[in-house]
Design a protein around this nucleic acid. Sequence first.
DNA 1: AGTTGCTATTGACAGAGTGACAACAACTTG
DNA 2: CAAGTTGTTGTCACTCTGTCAATAGCAACT
Lengths: 206, 206
Amino acid sequence: MSTETEPRWRRLEPDQRREQILDCAIRLFGERPYAEVSTTDIAREAGVARGLINHYFGSKRGLYLEVVRRMVTVPIADRSAVPDGSLAERVEFSVDWLLDVISARGKTWVAVLGTEGVGNDPEVERILAEADEMAAENLVRTVGMRDAEPAGAELRALVRAFGGMVKAAGREWITHGTLTREQVQLVLTEQLTALLGETFPHLQRM
Amino acid sequence: MSTETEPRWRRLEPDQRREQILDCAIRLFGERPYAEVSTTDIAREAGVARGLINHYFGSKRGLYLEVVRRMVTVPIADRSAVPDGSLAERVEFSVDWLLDVISARGKTWVAVLGTEGVGNDPEVERILAEADEMAAENLVRTVGMRDAEPAGAELRALVRAFGGMVKAAGREWITHGTLTREQVQLVLTEQLTALLGETFPHLQRM
DNA sequence: AGTTGCTATTGACAGAGTGACAACAACTTG
DNA sequence: CAAGTTGTTGTCACTCTGTCAATAGCAACT
């Protein structure tokens, strides 16, 4: 008879275990609202003791913030493929790339950023603000508007505002199916072109 | 010596008490996130026994949904004052009215819709979707695009997407102060004009 | 004024969830 | 194989939520 000394649990590298718990948390937080997800649920999902969550993330809230941070991070554009054409062409390229990103995340993206809840959460707000800022910065670079440097702050504010429409249009497309990708592409391209080509110059003369 | 039989608590009409609790809940939920607000806090703020909250709203979540519903409801535009001019003029009027509404709610509005959290909450989503739908419907009527009836669904989807930009621009103005009201006015007016006058016709030919 | 009835409101209780921490066990190293 | 390292567990104390029977404000009617 074999002395089956099969261990009751496996000991993982901290990074691996962290990642595993984070994955489960992302899934569960994506399914139902914060208060409806207990750390017990997450622990069970990860096949782990509940206390381990506190060990790695301090508190439930800490884990949640980590989830938000993870989900909101947008990949940086590969600018090597950006065409050198007119503003309209570069904008079209950028929008297309944006929609690719949204499409890739698909349901998860929507499930995560789809709901605007009530409740002032400075920490979450900061994370999202930073993400929006990076996305805006990135978009500005991609369409090559760097020459407008002096009014950079206003330009980025404009683009962040545009980001709101991107998200809303994305929801119309992905979740509600009221617009096709082609339609969203058209709308966002025309709007962003007008924003950068027309409105922005007007704004600078105020 | 007077037989001071001062009552320990006053008995209110259900509607009044409901309203009072709701007011306190709105204030507190506007200050910190859902999980950080306990029903004990709300009860104390309202000077009321905790159990009463459950009596009126069933659960903490029920109260929360009521708060969201209340905060998200946008007053109907007074169409009697809408000018009969060009599309651009009507759009300008509508945007101005929108900004008035946002301005009136001010910090509260932002505190409420400012944070996009993570977590799929169908109920909250439904409430917000309905509110957006009503706002879009209202805006479409105000700018007098009712003639575009056959493509009403797409038009409203477009306007809902635009609503995303309204919110984002409002945040830039109210909370971050990166744009002035005049700038936001200009941006939204031009964008909406282009959306309705240019992009929408283009969209119909797809 | 005293009594009665209705119901808004309270207070206590049970169950569930969270965070802290000491003890344990899987794995590494010599 | 022994000893140390540390990832992991399980329990304890505390807080929060929802339920419910008991209480008390108030109006109506003697």
